[in-house]
Design a binder for these strands. Structure first.
Lengths: 349, 349
DNA sequence: GTTAGCACTCATTTAATTAGAGTGCTAATC
DNA sequence: GATTAGCACTCTAATTAAATGAGTGCTAAC
């Protein structure tokens, strides 16, 4: 519908205004556009068109007799065009300095860091959520008389430990039996396949050691909750000071709090109306699900580790961010990450 | 020496100036002091004394004909007095809402949070360093054909995992033998007791599987480096915006960067000229080992988990922080933490 | 040694002025 | 009918000037 609303000339002018504003951060006036574009129109004509664009809600005046700046609707129009056009041409992927790291944690921290330093915005990366992940291996071992160590390995080599306190020492044989029981019954199952029926069957078979089974399953449960809730890595939060419109102390403080309290960033990552085709989602201003980011734009992309296990990378910056560069960067990073993680996974299993 | 430098009246005036400045954050003038103290001196007399104090370097004027503010030397004098006097009276411990948490990580995060919200400054808490910790238990298990999982448990129930890739599957017997070898030789040793001689003896005995031994020892090494280098939890970094003298965007940005890059905070925690008696260390302004904190004061305390395993809690705020309250808070928190962790440790072993 | 008194300094606040960018509208032009 | 030149008008931001006031340093008197 936006197509019928704007004729070609208006589109050109609108794009010119936005591009110019992205560069300068200053309201842009009619005279600037008159020179900036190849339309060869006088400033007066541009003024008329701008007046129309304002009526249509694509641009606004910060105050009477200032230039115009894009409204959220204007940005939205620009971004939609941008993503559409980028779909056609195969954007030449930037090569990233991502090296396979020992631990995924370090890898992801590094991704956040590199992205932040490349874009000069704040970034966040969420660890792949393991909701539909499968159990690969369980091991119970006696650390000492009163303590068992339960180790759970999930697909993708996510390892979780838990120390279990016990009243009486377990003899080796029982331990072996419990290990057997756990592994034969649980290995290969995804977390949501472990239902009450299965649990009670296990406990039955464990006899007096049913309490231990409970605790092991707690460890498994931990793997979900903890990973899903908390694993968000951020970097470059202080980049927001580079953009005056975000760096007044009240706004900045709220924003930085959000980054510190990573918990709340989850909102961004669970939102599932991501563009199916590109896997990229752009929130502009009020579109953001997080209120402290009402003056920001956010670009996120979902990467896949396979089997429905997904994580997200995102950047947060001012509304006048360099969408083109950011989308490019994030798209290519997503690609690299997809590839890297799948390989890693393949090597591992 | 400071004792002979200042007579009693000067001390009273200096303390009055500092106290007043801590409260208001404004330069304090002679007239204020004349009323504020019970010395019954006219402002003119105070002026003379202040002039002396300035000559001696305890206070400075931000500009001609403004009131005085404490210099670093002035703060230092004040703080020294404060800590000395506090040593005598048993400060009544505040009760904290610290609950035993499943994981030490969560506990420490929580400590940082509570302290930040109590003091309204930025806080950091380092996990206990395990340098002199002992190995308690090692377990190698086969996850699948090409992967071993090595689990290392240290004293204090710090658990580390590592996935080890192997070329050929190991049979059960070999695995058992390796486990035996590792546990009999290493259990009970502290990390610095594992020297080259021991390592090569182990490798000898492992025969063709010496590579696996190496990797297990890597895991052990990880436990040190990673824990020592990285485990710092912070909270309330944005509190610095509450203090105008820190919140101009350049300073704030540097400071927040330091908090984000937790790595660099280590400096604060390894510095070992902590007051032996109280375990509390105060850095004022330039005394700070971290350059981005030249305009801050820092109060740290070391807590002990026993056996020389130490961690640190600290707060970072403006130079005109409420030292009294902070020292009190941190002292009591340190106490609680000491107690809590020792109990926990006792329960566990 | 203490104090009253006064001249002087300098940051902060307020007000007034100016300069400049940009618009909207009208009338002329293509 | 679309485009443009021209001009009056508006509003911000920058500049300047003046007023305010807190606080000092010094001197002379107590």
């Amino acid at each position: 519908m936006a197509d019928t609303e704007l004729d070609e000339r208006k589109v050109k002018i609108l794009n010119a205004i936005i591009k110019n504003y992205l560069e300068t951060g200053e309201p842009v006036g009619s005279r600037t556009i008159s020179k900036y574009t190849d339309l060869n129109l006088s400033s007066a004509t541009i003024r008329n068109e701008m007046s129309d664009l304002e009526d249509l809600g694509y641009i606004v005046q910060p105050h009477t007799s200032a230039g115009r700046i894009p409204s959220d609707k204007g940005y939205r129009f620009y971004v939609n065009n941008l993503i559409a056009s980028k779909d056609k041409e195969v954007s030449d992927m930037k090569e990233w300095m991502i090296e396979r790291e020992e631990k995924m944690e370090n890898l992801l921290k590094n991704v956040a860091k590199v992205l932040a330093s490349n874009t000069q915005y704040a970034t966040l990366v969420s660890a792949p959520s393991v909701v539909s992940n499968k159990l690969k291996f369980i091991q119970l071992s006696a650390v000492d008389e009163n303590q068992l160590l339960s180790v759970v390995v999930m697909d993708g080599n996510i390892v979780k430990n838990k120390i279990i306190h016990i009243e009486k020492p377990l003899d080796n044989e029982t331990l072996l039996k419990l290990n057997m029981l756990l592994n034969t019954n649980l290995n290969g199952l995804s977390v949501d396949q472990i239902n009450l029926a299965l649990i009670s069957r296990l406990k039955d078979q464990a006899g007096i050691h049913d309490e231990i089974i409970s605790q092991v399953l707690d460890t498994v449960a931990d793997t979900i909750t903890e990973d899903e809730d908390l694993q968000v890595y951020t970097s470059g939060a202080t980049n927001i000071f580079k953009y005056p419109e975000l760096s007044d102390s009240k706004k900045a403080s709220e924003l930085l709090d959000t980054f510190e309290e990573k918990q709340s960033l989850i909102e961004l990552l669970t939102d599932k109306n991501t563009d199916e085709e590109t896997g990229i989602q752009v929130y502009i201003g009020d579109e953001s699900p997080i209120s402290s980011m009402k003056d920001c734009s956010i670009v996120t992309a979902t990467y896949e580790l396979g089997e429905g296990v997904k994580g997200t990378i995102g950047i947060v910056g001012p509304k006048r961010m360099d969408y083109e560069n950011v989308v490019d960067n994030i798209k290519s990073l997503k690609g690299q990450l997809d590839k890297l993680l799948r390989n890693e996974n393949k090597n591992d299993s």
